[in-house]
Simulated assay, not measured.
Amino acid sequence: MKNQILKLVLFIFVAAFVVSCQEDPLEDIISNDRQFLSFKIEGQVGPSIIKSIGEDSGTIELFALTDNVNLNNITPIFEVSEKGSVSPQEGEAVNFNNNDGSFTYQIVSESGKSRAWTVIINTYDSTLDGNWKVSSLIYDWHIGLNNDWGWGVFGPYDVATSSYDPANYAPEVLAKDFPNVAFEEDNTLEFRTLLINENGNPEGAFSFGAGADNTFSSFVLDPDHKGNVRDYSDRYRQMPEGNGVWEYNELGKVITLWEGNKNGPSVKGDVTVDAQGNITIAFNIWEDAFTWDHWDAESHIQNAYTIYYNFEEDNL
């Protein structure tokens, strides 16, 4: 038994010695890598778009609030290929005003190959900034979702494909079920970008006004089918009334709205922009709390999924 243990120890020792004496198969490989892995400047919105072009060139395109950036003196933060050398180096200030907001870096690989990288700074044009007015409020509702007996804005459920036909989708005007929502349809919204935070997200202030009728909708159903007053404001009041602040994730197209300041209540919405530049903010309001205590409009209200605030430019 002792001999077997001794042989095993000896085998492990010899194997480890042989492996340690073998040459690293990658040791003599000379790297040709000459890439920018990341690139960021102060005031930048979102990530940089880094593209190699052919064998010896590439572009880095980014967006920034150029009004708040001194293009004559920018010190980017970046990362390049491990064995590549870059000129100018990280930490050196460069002048982007010499060539219409662009600057060219050179990265030389370990093998001596060179690639010229042209960095282009574009002015960030916010799709949110401006004065808006509510053009419509629509919403999605559906009873018996993913059941062939269900009905609502998604149309009939196709059991064979486990899906709904998009051609049947028809969101409903919210004021049809909530008469008081008509007060919301003349409301005004002002967005202003104030800064770009460390995550590259624009932040700013907003003001959501009551419009010409000086009235916000309370999302009250009066009366319900039992003759009572039923208030759904806690669920449907997504746009904060009055003044607040916001942060917009440009990459994910998600806006966070805070009532008052960032210590106040917040809500997230998905932002889309149409071909005319009009914006829509969609809020998820689904609650899995359906009961058969409903009648007509109340069944729609209780089975709502998404509310859409559609805004068009307000030419004051």
Results as ranks from 00 to 15, higher is better:
Leu62Ser: 10
Val273Glu: 08
Trp295Cys: 13
Ala64Ser: 14
Ile138Phe: 02
Asp234Val: 03
Tyr308Asn: 11
Val181Gly: 09
Asp222Ile: 01
Pro179Leu: 07
Glu313Cys: 07
Ala289Asn: 12
Glu185Lys: 08
Gly204Glu: 01
Ile196Ala: 10
Val134Ile: 04
Thr118Trp: 01
Ala275Arg: 10
Gly43Cys: 09
Tyr139Phe: 03
Trp246Ser: 13
Lys268Ser: 13
Leu251Gly: 14
Gly54Trp: 00
Val94Asn: 10
Tyr169Arg: 15
Val159Pro: 07
Ile53Thr: 04
Gly46Lys: 10
Asp33Val: 02
Tyr169Lys: 14
Asp314Phe: 02
Glu190Asp: 04
Trp258Ile: 04
Ser57Val: 02
Gly211Tyr: 00
Asn201His: 03
Phe191Asn: 04
Asp224Glu: 07
Asp177Tyr: 00
Val159His: 13
Val159Thr: 11
Val80Ser: 12
Trp117Phe: 04
Ala116Asp: 01
Val119Phe: 02
Thr123His: 13
Ile12Tyr: 03
Tyr309Ala: 15
Tyr164Arg: 15
Ala212Lys: 00
Asp67Gln: 12
Ser102Cys: 14
Leu316Tyr: 05
Trp149Leu: 07
Lys7Phe: 05
Val14His: 08
Tyr105Phe: 07
Leu128Phe: 00
Thr66Arg: 15
Lys262Tyr: 01
Gly43Glu: 11
Phe154Gln: 10
Gly264Pro: 01
